[in-house]
Design a binder for these strands. Structure first.
Lengths: 291, 291
DNA sequence: AAAAATAACTGACTTAAGTCAGGTGAATGT
DNA sequence: ACATTCACCTGACTTAAGTCAGTTATTTTT
């Protein structure tokens, strides 16, 4: 490791520190100290409860109180008692606060847009950023249950179908496959899990139940930039845990021989190959696992 | 641009802000405010002159003075008058200062090493970081003259030779090619230029003269992560400017048909194809340009 | 029902960081 | 030779950020 690994990472750090500093400076342009701006943005991004803001920004309780008072005096924020617990308080943006929040959003978005516009190799840059963000934030990848019809799930599923289309020699058309009803992938019959890294969905898996003691695993997908980190394994474990919770005894899944990593994972984690159990045109491998 | 481009960049920003913050916090662990630590590190990295430190860190003159006094009182730094101009002062680390500096270096390096060790896809991550750093720092890419035998030049040349080996169907062995004498690529006969981004060499070009009014362009190379940004054009322009300075009237170069981007660049920028002018085994294209 | 725990708050601090108006001695221009 | 410019310095500020002990109103525990 001479001019390489370490110095490449440190060069990256310098470049990125400068960028972060520049964004902070642009935030200062709205005439408000950074601390207040960060609180305003935390509220704008849906963090209403005072305790949640404190945790997210790592602020002292006294300091946050004062920052909130400041924003209230500016007329940007109101705080109300928490409906279920009168000790806590919930902050919300006023109309003026929402305008101010949008202005900060616009600053961030413009910077991001500029960067992309200035750099000729946009998609390549985005992929590199995804990879770096995943590497830096990998302890913060959370697996959450989500509505299979919601925006994060749809984002994953669209990527999943696109990838199947590329990888299956036959192409892939959702309409021809047995598209699970959303209700089959929601409690109490099933579940849909999304892996989220810093707010961006980067993987998913569906557990499709029919109310009986058998359920199917569907739509296991991990974003290319997050592969090789054991995320599909974590997703499968979470899906199995959810299956146990709703009283499933036997899990099944179908897959395609083109998806070699997936097949290897199933074999490694206790799944056994069984006979075809449906007449879906795409799968050619069928597995079962008893919980 | 829904869940895409902009939100991917902003996710990257969040991940990276957290990382930068964590590094700063680890620096705080040595019991010194960040400002002092940054000054100490700037000196350790060879920025001795007070004015240079000020520019680099963007500090107010008074503030820097005080920080320097503080470091002097700690016994980490001494400042001496500038040898050629007694108004200026030059700061240098004492023995204790060098120890302290190494401790900061170790903190940075450990963080970088940890990241690499934790992430299974190391080389891929490094390439992604290079690309992002280049994209963020592209206005800061500087073209500098360097000793062709120095570390930055050797780093570029090694990468250049390796790439030729991959791209030429015949492979490439430096010993068989006419390796220019270093003195031919230094003033007053020639020059060697290196493109530096944030301290890391990412491209080079050699101007090889024999003392006459003809010179050759050699060893044009740009790091893969920095391609597509017009850097080779900038390098060539800088080489031509250097050639004019040392009184060259005619430039020549040889190239290989496998290096298509290079050939396209030469044709676009006023070079004309000429007959073979050497018996080097690798090139099969020969160009000339009158200045 | 009283005691303990909790969430947010207020007041009284400290520290870091930055600004700005001079001041000193050395170099430079005419 | 003199005024001007320059590089760094000191003193006197301001602001932002953060700490900490103690208060109040509420909820939870016993």
């Amino acid at each position: 490791m001479s001019i390489d690994a370490i110095s490449r990472i440190r060069r990256f750090n310098r470049a990125v520190t400068a960028e972060v500093g520049a964004l902070d400076t642009s935030f200062l342009g709205r005439g408000r100290p950074l601390g207040s701006a960060r609180v305003l943005n935390a509220i704008g991004h849906g963090r209403g409860e005072v305790g949640a803001i404190r945790d997210y920004l790592g602020l002292d309780s006294g300091l946050l109180s004062r920052l909130l008072r400041g924003l209230e005096e500016e007329g940007l924020v109101v705080t109300l008692p928490h409906p279920g617990d009168a000790r806590r308080r919930v902050a919300a943006l006023t109309e003026a606060g929402r305008r101010e929040f949008s202005a900060y959003e616009a600053l961030s978005n413009d910077r991001a847009g500029d960067l992309l516009a200035r750099f000729p190799k946009g998609e390549e840059l985005l992929r590199a950023m995804d990879l770096v963000a995943t590497a830096l934030g990998r302890d913060r990848i959370a697996i959450e249950e989500a509505d299979p019809r919601g925006e994060p799930a749809r984002h994953c599923l669209a990527a999943y179908y696109a990838e199947l289309g590329r990888r299956l020699s036959t192409g892939f058309d959702v309409a021809l496959s047995r598209d699970p009803e959303a209700a089959d992938m929601m409690r109490p019959r099933g579940a849909f899990l999304v892996a989220v890294s810093d707010g961006l969905p980067i993987g998913c898996v569906g557990l499709k139940g029919k109310g009986g003691e058998t359920a199917e695993i569907k739509r296991l997908w991990v974003c290319p930039s997050a592969r090789g980190l054991g995320l599909s394994r974590r997703l499968m474990e979470a899906a199995e845990a959810a299956a146990r919770e709703i009283g499933i005894a036997v899990l099944r899944l179908d897959s395609n021989s083109a998806l070699t990593e997936a097949l290897a994972l199933y074999r490694r984690t206790g799944w056994v190959e069984i006979d075809r159990f449906n007449d879906d045109p795409y799968p050619d491998f069928f597995f079962e696992k008893r919980l």
